[in-house]
Structure formats: structure tokens, C-alpha cells
């Protein structure tokens, strides 16, 4: 991948909450067309990274993040979304009384507005979404249910991916979208993600399981531990982690 094609560039990002450091001097470059996997033990800061990228407030943040040539940290969450940044949440929230389809249409039209495109009317939107639902093997009754309310864990995750394929982001960050899925559901989710692969797009997958990477082949794998990327490599790194666990890295760090 050419260096000119960098979509996301994180430079010495440090994040803390109430003076408790969570990420320390983290640097990462993601080029268009790439898929990166981020792995790491519980509590190492993976979700924090994802949330900070999406613009969640309440963190003390220092360092630089540039996205499509802009200072990402300067933008509000919605401004980031309009520029094609998408986060699939580790824990998608329930919003009672708000239709899934209503939220999704509002979201898509907000982004279209930013791009200077006319909003889709109900009919046009339905055409778009029906095709995507087929891809995600989601039943149409889904649309008229309230956002995530009463959804099973698996349904919530699939709903996140449905939103992603409808919104067609430039940079998608998927925070443990595979957790809690059975093997069939995981294949469907992986299929959704794979259809998104495109030379213009980048995908960052946060996962605990090498299994997902059998279906979505990453270009790079990073290990996040104690708020830092302690190791980066190709897909083989994930296999090694599967075999040896994180302790192997820790020991290596000690002996080094």
C-alpha cells in the first residue's frame, strides 16, 4: 500500500480518564484499502481507542490524529460520521420507541446532506435497505422494531453491520462485532464486512478471536497491551497469539 494513501494517521495518542492513563503514546497508520485487526487482553484500551476515534467526550486526550488530511480530534462526533467514519459499538444501546429504519434513514440523509446530495425519500431508501438486508440475512420485521430494544446480542451485532453496509463508510471501526456470535452469524457478519472491502476504504477490526480472521483476512495485526501497541505483524501474528496467548508477548518484553 502506498504511503500517500494514508486514511488515518494516529501519532502519539495518549488518553486518560480522571488522570488514569489508558492509552499511552499510541501510533498507528491505516491506509485506504487495508484491513487492520487489533487484538489484546481485556482492559487493554481497545474500546477506548475506538471511542476516542469516534469522538466520545469525557476523556483527556493528547497527541495527533489526522483523518483524510483533517485534524480528527477537532471534529464533533457527527462531523466525523459525515466524513465517513463509522463505529460498530461493542455494546450497541437500545433506544425505545425510535424505529430502526427511522434512525437509519435519518443517519443516511444526514451524511448525504453533508455531501451535498439530495435526501432519499422513503421509497428510495426502502430500495437501498432491502438489498442490504438480504445481504445481512435480516428479516424485514427488524426495520419496524425500536433500535436494538429487545434485540438478542447477536441481533444487535448484525444490526450494527447492517448500518455499516447502508452508510458505506470510508473508515469502519468494528469493536468486537464478532463477540457473542455463533459460527453462522459470524460468517454472515464477515460476508458483510468483506463486501465493504474496497481500495478506497479501510477497516479496523477489534477482536479477541483469530477465528474471525479466517473469514476476514487482515493486512495487519496489532497487539494492544497496557495502552500501547506492543507488536504489529501480518496475519501470522494472530495465529501465534492463538497458540501462545498474550503471556508469550509479555515474557518477550521482559527478556528483551
Amino acid at each position: 500500500m502506498s504511503k500517500n494513501n494514508i486514511l488515518l494517521s494516529i501519532n502519539k495518542l495518549s488518553v486518560s480518564i480522571d488522570d488514569k492513563p489508558i492509552l499511552r503514546d499510541l501510533s498507528l497508520q491505516v491506509a485506504a484499502g487495508e484491513v487492520h485487526a487489533i487484538m489484546g487482553p481485556n482492559g487493554s484500551g481497545k474500546s477506548t481507542l475506538a471511542q476516542v476515534l469516534a469522538g466520545r467526550e469525557g476523556y483527556e486526550v493528547s497527541g495527533e490524529v489526522s483523518y483524510l488530511g483533517e485534524d480528527l480530534l477537532d471534529l464533533s462526533p457527527e462531523e466525523r460520521a459525515w466524513r465517513g467514519l463509522f463505529l460498530a459499538f461493542q455494546y450497541p444501546v437500545e433506544i425505545p420507541g425510535v424505529n430502526n429504519v427511522y434512525l437509519l434513514k435519518a443517519a443516511l440523509n444526514a451524511q448525504r446532506k453533508y455531501r451535498g446530495e439530495a435526501p432519499l425519500d422513503a421509497f428510495e431508501f426502502l430500495t437501498v435497505i432491502q438489498e442490504k438486508m438480504k445481504l445481512m440475512q435480516i428479516d424485514e420485521s427488524f426495520l419496524n422494531r425500536s433500535v436494538n430494544a429487545g434485540f438478542s446480542g447477536c441481533e444487535k451485532k448484525r444490526n450494527e453491520i447492517l448500518q455499516m453496509v447502508v452508510l458505506e463508510p470510508r473508515l469502519a471501526v468494528l469493536d468486537e462485532t464478532d463477540s457473542g456470535l455463533d459460527i453462522d452469524a459470524m460468517k454472515i457478519v464477515a460476508n458483510g464486512v468483506n463486501t465493504m472491502r474496497d481500495p478506497e476504504r479501510a477497516i479496523v477490526l477489534v477482536t479477541h478471536y483469530q477465528r474471525l480472521l479466517d473469514y476476514i483476512k487482515p493486512d495487519k495485526v496489532h497487539v494492544l497491551a497496557d495502552g500501547q501497541i506492543v507488536r504489529s505483524g501480518g496475519p501470522e501474528l494472530a495465529l501465534k497469539l492463538e497458540e501462545k496467548g498474550y503471556d508469550w508477548l509479555r515474557q518477550e518484553a521482559v527478556s528483551a
Binding site: G58, E78, Q111
Partner: peptide, 27 residues
């Protein structure tokens, strides 16, 4: 909560619209 608002905003819905959406959903 912050969570619902952030969720909507992450999808590109402006803060004020997000509040309205959540409140209207409730009602």
C-alpha cells in the same frame, strides 16, 4: 444518557436532533 446521544451522533445525527428523536421515541 450520554450513550444514546453518542450512538445517534456517531451515526451522523446532530445532537439536538438526537435529543428530539430519543424524547419522541419515548413518547
Amino acid at each position: 444518557g450520554e450513550d444514546e446521544l453518542f450512538y445517534c451522533r456517531q451515526r451522523g445525527i446532530e445532537e439536538e436532533d438526537a435529543v428530539n428523536m430519543i424524547v419522541n421515541g419515548f413518547c
